[in-house]
Amino acid sequence: MTHARRFILSAASGLALIAALPATAQDFITVASTTSTENSGLFGHILPMFQEETGIEVRVVSQGTGQALETGRRGDADVVFVHARAQEEQFVADGYGVQRFDVMYNDFVIVGPGDDPAEVRMAADATAAMTAIAVAEAAFASRGDDSGTHVAEANLWAAAGVAPAGRWYLSTGSGMGATLNTAAQVPAYALTDRGTWLSFENRGDLEIVFEGDPVLFNPYGIILVNPERHAHVKAEQGQAFIDWVTSDEGQAAIADFTVGGEQLFFPSAA
């Protein structure tokens, strides 16, 4: 039957198509990073410069901090580029990473409804700001996803001596953007990194109500996944990327990056 033959032929050519797919692999590395970094647009700014110079394509997989580190542990990335200092150091100590380098920092800000029901604007420091929210039982949207931002938030609550719970505390269990979307709807207070906030458009009534306390600084580190653990890691190209990001040129590129005229990331490589 000719129909059947035609059917089998088209199925076979489909399979051939699949087989041909991965043939595009050239010189590239995979970097596991965080959603907030990707969302800020930083990579779109610096990666073309790096590729131009070295010919190495950087494929950024953006995930939550915990997931990004897990991706590195499993050997599914060559480089990890995240912001959760304690976990990063653990990652290296456990032998999954070669060495951690400082790259840059940005800061967290507390955003909330413009009419500021908990009077957070009056707070002297970040701890006081969190206390004010808890005392007023004003709505607060939390990532609740063990991300770097969530960990920073948990540290602030601990410093304030508050165990956040109750109807006012909304744990979204999702990314920064989704959490901000929720906060804008309620409206609620939220802790966010400045980068995501600046490039976030669906702000509704939200404004920055607290910023500037040094405890809100958010350092980024970059780590080469240990080739002794995962032999396929592209150590040479990965290290080239790390070297470039921490070089004067890479640091300048980071400092150059602005959103709405504001600098988002501050170079911090030694």
Binding site: L180, E201, N202, R203
Partner: peptide, 8 residues
């Protein structure tokens, strides 16, 4: 991604 960026 665009939803996460608030670019609704």
């Amino acid at each position: 991604l665009e939803t996460a960026r608030g670019q609704l």
